[in-house]
Amino acid sequence: MTTNSITLTVNGDQVRRDVPARQHLIDFLRLDLGLMGSHVACEHGVCGACTVRLDGAIVRGCLVLAASLHGSTVETIEGVSDSGEIRDLQDAFIARNAAQCGYCTPGMLMTAADLLKSNATPTRAEIREHISGNYCRCTGYQAIVDAVETTAHKRRSSGPKP
């Protein structure tokens, strides 16, 4: 099996590992780093359960090779939870029951947080469109749309503009 040596930053920590060339980012996070919050579900880039942030932009973790990430910065649901960056969004998900089984939730939150970074006043249609690459079988999506909308509204009415 071919391996590559990589050094990268994951959730603020520098990590160095030898990884199989064929291993995707999510298996690397889960199997090598024990970060089980990013979920493997379709492994062909359609469902969004593995959405993580790579160098500031959301990506499908299953469509990125870990071996290609030397020098990169990766942030996962564990990272943004620990930093408190999306605490308000997570609270809104809890209050609105925008997660049922919770399997899509980390990817859904990463995608929703991405929208709120670039659009402070998303319409419901824009929210639906932005999360339309993230499959949720449980909720029917409305609660998620509500939670994202509520968070956007709260951020506008409370926090200072970034």
Binding site: R30, L35, M36, G37, S38, H39, V40, T76, I77, E78, S81, Q90, F93, I94, A95, N97, A99, C101, G102, Y103, T105, P106, L109
Partner: peptide, 18 residues
């Protein structure tokens, strides 16, 4: 609110593959 949501929104549930 459900008691098991805080862990799920932080990706700290425990599914079989975990």
């Amino acid at each position: 609110p459900r008691p098991n949501l805080p862990k799920l929104v932080e990706g700290r549930g425990q599914f079989v593959d975990d």
